[in-house]
Amino acid sequence: MEVGQKVCVYRLRDRVSPLIAKRLGQIGVVQDYKMTDGSGVGFLVKFTDNSATWFFEDEVRPATGDN
């Protein structure tokens, strides 16, 4: 995935706060990359309400017309 790409949050790997949990199923835009523990890459995703949080690579997927 690339910066500027629309993504959908489709799963949450860990237990998260209710604020983050409400992002499940929402579409946002990748703003930046984040190195996770080990060699993984995460994505900083910004939503329409101008809030942003990061997700693991396997928690988001490219947004389609079906999301």
Rank of each mutant, 00 (worst) to 15 (best):
C8M: 09
Q31K: 14
Y33E: 06
G4M: 07
L19E: 01
N50V: 08
N50P: 05
E59R: 04
K34C: 11
R15I: 03
S39C: 13
Q31H: 15
K34H: 13
F47P: 03
R13Y: 07
G28W: 04
K34L: 15
D37W: 13
F43Y: 11
F56H: 09
Q5G: 14
K6R: 06
D14N: 10
K22G: 01
V3K: 11
R11Y: 04
T48R: 12
V7L: 01
W54S: 14
T64I: 13
S51Y: 05
D32G: 06
Q31Y: 08
T64F: 07
P62I: 08
V3G: 10
V3C: 13
Q31E: 13
G28P: 06
V30Y: 00
K34R: 13
G40R: 15
E59W: 01
Y33L: 13
Y10Q: 15
E59F: 02
R11M: 07
G28T: 12
R15C: 07
Q5L: 15
G38P: 14
R61H: 05
G40I: 06
E2N: 12
Y10C: 15
D37C: 12
T36R: 07
R15W: 00
G28M: 07
D58W: 06
L19F: 00
K34W: 11
K46L: 02
Q31T: 15
A21V: 00
V9D: 08
F43T: 12
G25A: 02
I27N: 00
F47K: 03
S51E: 09
L24C: 02
Q31N: 10
D14F: 06
R61M: 14
V30W: 01
G65W: 08
S39V: 12
C8A: 10
F56V: 08
L12K: 03
D32M: 04
Y33R: 06
G42M: 10
D49Q: 09
F43H: 08
G40K: 09
T48V: 13
G28S: 09
P62S: 05
E2V: 08
P18A: 06
K46M: 06
S51T: 12
V45K: 05
G40H: 09
F56P: 04
F47G: 05
V7Q: 00
V60C: 06
W54N: 14
Q26R: 03
T64P: 09
D32R: 07
W54C: 15
G4F: 07
V29P: 15
V16A: 00
C8R: 09
S51K: 07
I20F: 01
K34F: 12
S39M: 15
V29F: 14
L12G: 02
